[in-house]
Design a protein around this nucleic acid. Structure first.
Lengths: 189, 189
DNA sequence: TTACGATTTTGACTAATCTCAAATTTTTGT
DNA sequence: ACAAAAATTTGAGATTAGTCAAAATCGTAA
């Protein structure tokens, strides 16, 4: 149980010995280079992954433009929520922004765990909750009055991400012009 | 099985005879007048309710202002998601906007159903999905460029709600000034 | 190290939205 | 039906953000 993902899952709900053994045997470490896509558009394959190092960005296309839907970093768990839920092809793309190391379990193994270790379903529910809360937080942020307020709210909540992500990616996340965000950062607005 | 809520739940996952009987015995019909609060701030008590008639609005306070988080109407199911998830006092308030009739099951009965009829947990998961998707849709809407685009997107998606809800409530939902929304509606912008 | 491409910053101008104030319309209680 | 309250509309001026274009900076591969 020296694996970080397993420790995290175990803290959500105590895992039985059998499940523990199963998960440990199926865990895979994967590495990605900056710009590499960890989940491509239209891919159905779902996975659960723990980020050991690096930050990733998830985005979708709207009128040809890439809109950032969120950022995640070391210690966070990535699941492709849409796939997780409905088993339909994802229209969310997950991209590594830095050199990234993850610990992943494949969808097939996940299904096996759900069926054979019912307590594992609780993990699914808890992760879903987490994503729901994140979604609500983004709504809260977007309803701030000015772009300045939106940016400073995020800066307080996620200072590291605001440091490490590209200006343009943050801009589409906030829903503000890239140039406007640049001006806010240099306090010219 | 002539009850609409039960029919809806049954369409999510076929309910066993025992569960059916239990639910039918615990269902309560309640009525609310316009302006009446169906869930007050800080209340922990969670419930699942099917709206038979009327529209309701859920809102939260931000800097003393009431911000609409969504609207629901006849045929929709209301759950106080936050309570549902975490059993903490809700900061969401649910208000009847018209004379409203609902069919409700109390939280205690719900818990009983979860424990004694495991298949009922699937309903919880499916409803969570539904709320997550709704949350994402609101994010999508809020990231439209102009207020005009936001309003017309909603008008297309939810024409009835745009008709029946108050201008001011819609405005806080969209995140736009009440006066601006009025001008958009009368095409003066 | 240099040169190229990507990213960020800056400027000038335009468009959208907010603010505050007041008028008008609609709804509600008696 | 009428008065009072609530909700919506309208106006004018101030503020904020978007657009387009160009310059500056940064990071990376050869």
């Amino acid at each position: 149980m020296n694996n970080l993902l397993i420790q995290l899952l175990n803290s959500i709900v105590p895992l039985s010995d059998g499940l523990l053994e199963f998960l440990e045997s199926r865990l895979e470490t994967r590495r990605y280079e900056p710009g590499e896509l960890m989940l491509k558009e239209g891919q159905v394959s779902s996975f659960i992954a723990f980020i050991e190092k690096g930050i990733v960005r998830s985005y979708y296309y709207k009128d040809g433009e890439k809109i950032t839907s969120w950022f995640m970093k070391e210690g966070d768990i990535i699941i492709s929520v849409a796939s997780f839920f409905s088993q339909t092809p994802s229209n969310e793309i997950i991209e590594a922004l830095e050199p990234v190391t993850i610990n992943a379990i494949s969808y097939a193994d996940l299904q096996y765990a759900y069926v054979h270790f019912p307590e594992f379903n609780i993990c699914g529910r808890v992760l879903t909750e987490k994503y729901y809360v994140m979604s609500e937080e983004r709504l809260y942020m977007l309803r701030k009055r000015t772009s300045k307020e939106k940016y400073f709210y995020l800066l307080e909540k996620h200072p590291d991400i605001m440091q490490r992500a590209r200006l343009g990616d943050i801009a589409t996340f906030i829903g503000v012009n890239l140039e406007t965000l640049s001006r806010i950062r240099s306090e010219k607005i």
